[in-house]
């Protein structure tokens, strides 16, 4: 690890200023992903600007929804009674991620900004376009069990690891961003990007952009939401696939739906196509299956030394059916 300076800025504006002026500076939040990358030699900032004290760590009621401070810890968000009852999928997503200790450390803004756990990205002795542009993608032709089936490119097949981000995508959240130019908001579903020809960028944020708040809108349907994570261990493992869903069923017919997938793309995947198919149809397994199949029509699976990731297509379809059936049959 290279030496770095460490600063605790007086407020969010000076924090943004410090990072913006300094090309090799980085914001430090909970540190759970950044410190790991420093140790692995994946990133080499020479200045860390600690933002845990300059953004809110509280959760406030706001226009029927909630404003979550960027510095709020994952465990505190998941424990908040308003989150648990109004946005249960978010609480479930948070609680299915990482471990109790990590959730006590990781922040609201940091969790969605964590980077892929692609083993080649995390091993600096192998090629990786995300880590070293132009070096190639070692995952292609390697071990691909955890890799993307939607939206990947020939440059990168990594998946986004955050559970929280999948729930926020489904629940129509918005992020508030402070930059040297001022404040702006970004719909959560537009925060992350597909790899395309430049996998180095996970999100649309620029250097010096600081997430200050995550806004959850007033959302009656969110009360009927769930997050289901399929993984290889019963706990403390990243998703093979995950589903965040919300459903409103009236007289056996789906009147409204929200659906997002995790573990299958470079970003949390909002399943807009599937939602369109669900709405207006009877709440049956056949409908759920059709919707999931439609969303996955463009899936491109990878061969691999481990048998590849083709299993994710049927797995995700079956998981969608399972989650939507449960939402319809066991309203919260």
């Amino acid at each position: 690890m290279r030496p770095f300076d460490y600063r605790t800025p007086a407020n969010a504006v000076t924090a943004v200023q410090a990072v913006t002026e300094h090309p090799a500076a980085a914001f430090l939040g909970g540190g759970t992903n950044l410190l790991d990358h420093l140790k692995l030699g994946i990133t080499h900032p020479d200045l860390l600007v600690d933002v845990t004290s300059v953004t809110a760590d509280t959760i406030e009621d706001f226009q029927g929804g909630l404003l979550i401070g960027a510095a709020a810890r994952n465990s505190d968000i998941a424990a908040d009674y308003r989150v648990r009852t109004r946005y249960p999928a978010l609480a479930e997503a948070l609680l299915s991620g990482a471990s109790g200790q990590l959730r006590n450390m990781a922040t609201a803004a940091g969790n969605p900004l964590q980077r892929t756990r692609c083993p080649y990205f995390q091993d600096p002795t192998t090629p990786c376009n995300k880590r070293r542009p132009g070096s190639g993608c070692a995952a292609i032709g390697g071990f691909t069990r955890g890799h993307a089936i939607l939206g990947a490119s020939t440059h990168c097949v990594a998946t986004h690891p955050s559970d929280m981000a999948v729930a926020l995508t489904a629940l129509d959240a918005t992020v508030h961003v402070l930059s040297a130019q001022g404040e702006r908001t970004i719909p959560f579903a537009e925060l992350h990007r597909l790899p395309g020809a430049d996998p180095t960028r996970d999100t649309v944020l620029d250097h010096g952009d600081l997430i200050t708040l995550i806004e959850l809108p007033y959302s009656p349907i969110a009360r009927q939401s769930r997050y289901y994570k399929v993984r290889d261990r019963a706990s403390f493992a990243f998703a093979l696939v995950s589903v965040a869903a919300a459903l409103t069923v009236t007289d056996g017919v789906i009147s409204d739906a929200r659906l997002a997938f995790g573990g299958i793309a470079h970003k949390p995947w909002r399943a807009n196509r599937a939602e369109q198919i669900l709405i207006g149809e009877p709440a049956t397994d056949a409908t759920y299956r059709l919707a999931a199949e439609h969303e996955l029509a463009d899936a491109r699976t990878l061969d691999g030394l481990d048998g590849g990731n083709a299993f994710k297509v049927p797995l995700l379809i079956r998981t969608v059916v399972s989650v939507l059936r449960r939402l319809a049959e066991e309203p919260r």
């Binding site: 430090l28 540190g31 759970t32 410190l35 109790g100 200790q101 990590l102 006590n104 450390m105």
Partner: peptide, 12 residues
């Protein structure tokens, strides 16, 4: 609160 001390910088 329980935390992982391997991922907390001492300066913080």
């Amino acid at each position: 609160r329980r935390v992982l001390s391997c991922l907390v910088l001492a300066v913080t």
